[in-house]
Computed example of a mutant assay.
Amino acid sequence: MKNFRTALGALGCVLACALTFNAHAALFEDDEARRAILEVRQRLDASQQRLTEELRRSGEENAQLRRSLLELSGQIEQLRSELARMRGQDEQFARELAEVQRAQKDMSQGVNDRLSRFEPSKVSVDGREFTADPAEKQEYEAALAVLRKGEFAPAQTAFSNFLKRYPQSGYKAPALFWLGNAQYALRNYRDAMVNFRALVAADPEHLRAPEAVLAVANCQVELKDVKGARKTLEDLLKAYPQSEAASVAKERVAKLR
């Protein structure tokens, strides 16, 4: 019995020790768990704080980015407006430049037209090309126009004045020819012969020279100088055998014999 009690006591001690150990172990495990939980919470809090800070910074950065985008958009719009204004100025400048160029062209054309009224120009009369002053050309053409209207007396005056004013003119030979014709029409045969002969003497190769010689013969016939007319016609046949005037001269020589 004593041994049983002793054993039972020993068992009780063992159980008490076991219970005490288990209580201490449980208490130790609870502390570790709490510390682990605290550490997890601390890490979570730190993570949440970092996340909150990052979100705050991200929000600030986004706000700054939006402000920058708005500023950039405003600058772009301002540049567009400036570009449109500059394009408008360029178009206006182009129009003004075109107007100035047109004005300069018109002015230049006007100046050239005015100068052309005074500057010599090339003209061609009776197959001859020469240079004549505008006033010279105008006066010759005016005298010729009077003759063509059959106004022989004014034409005689006009051509006489022309030859006095322009004695070295390229129009000299035709002016002598038409002056002689005007005088012939006025029956001023002697003066007509003087001018026809002056044409041949001054320019024997002129297109009108054969006609001028024939006109001299006509004047001699009108003055009843048949012998002189025949001689003039014979001279015409020798000097200008291929001319149309020579064909007429052949017929007239035959009639004068």
Rank of each mutant, 00 (worst) to 15 (best):
A153E: 13
E53A: 12
T157R: 03
M86I: 12
N3Y: 08
N218V: 04
E141R: 01
Q242Y: 09
L237A: 04
H24I: 15
R34E: 07
Q64T: 03
H206Q: 02
P154H: 10
L115K: 07
D106T: 15
E53H: 04
L70C: 01
K172I: 13
F93E: 09
A239Y: 00
Q48H: 06
Q64A: 13
V40S: 13
S116V: 00
T52Y: 02
G150R: 06
A33K: 15
D126S: 10
A212F: 13
R148Q: 13
C219F: 03
N195V: 12
Q78A: 13
G9I: 00
A23P: 01
D45L: 09
G110C: 01
M107H: 09
A215T: 06
L199Q: 06
D45I: 06
G88A: 11
R50W: 04
S47K: 08
V100A: 09
T20Y: 05
V226S: 09
G228I: 12
D203Q: 11
R95H: 14
Q183E: 12
Q89F: 02
E29L: 13
N181A: 11
S247E: 14
G88M: 02
D90L: 08
E91N: 11
A103D: 06
A245W: 00
D225C: 05
L8K: 03
L51D: 11
D235S: 12
E151H: 10
V253A: 12
E53G: 14
E60V: 03
L19G: 10
M107P: 00
P120D: 15
L27S: 08
C17M: 12
E136S: 06
G59T: 06
E60C: 01
N218W: 15
L223N: 03
R50Q: 15
L15V: 10
M1Q: 11
R197Y: 00
Y166Q: 07
S58V: 02
N22K: 03
R85A: 14
E29H: 13
L163T: 14
L27D: 05
K172G: 04
L199W: 08
A143R: 08
A135T: 10
T232I: 04
R128E: 15
Q49K: 12
Q42W: 06
K2Y: 07
Q64M: 10
E60Q: 13
L15C: 08
Q168F: 03
R34G: 00
A33E: 08
N22F: 11
E29D: 07
K238E: 04
N188M: 05
A103T: 15
T52V: 05
D113F: 13
A18Q: 08
N195G: 10
S247G: 10
R34L: 10
F118C: 01
E71G: 03
V100P: 00
A175Y: 05
G170Y: 01
R190Q: 11
Q220G: 05
G12R: 02
R230N: 09
A132M: 14
A25M: 12
T52G: 15
G127V: 01
V40C: 01
M107K: 12
K255F: 11
M86R: 07
N188D: 14
E60F: 04
V14R: 02
Q138M: 00
R35E: 07
A245F: 03
E29F: 15
T131W: 04
V125D: 10
L207K: 09
N181F: 15
Q242W: 03
F159M: 04
A25S: 07
Q42M: 06
L11K: 05
S124E: 14
I37M: 08
G170H: 01
Q49C: 02
M107W: 09
R43M: 08
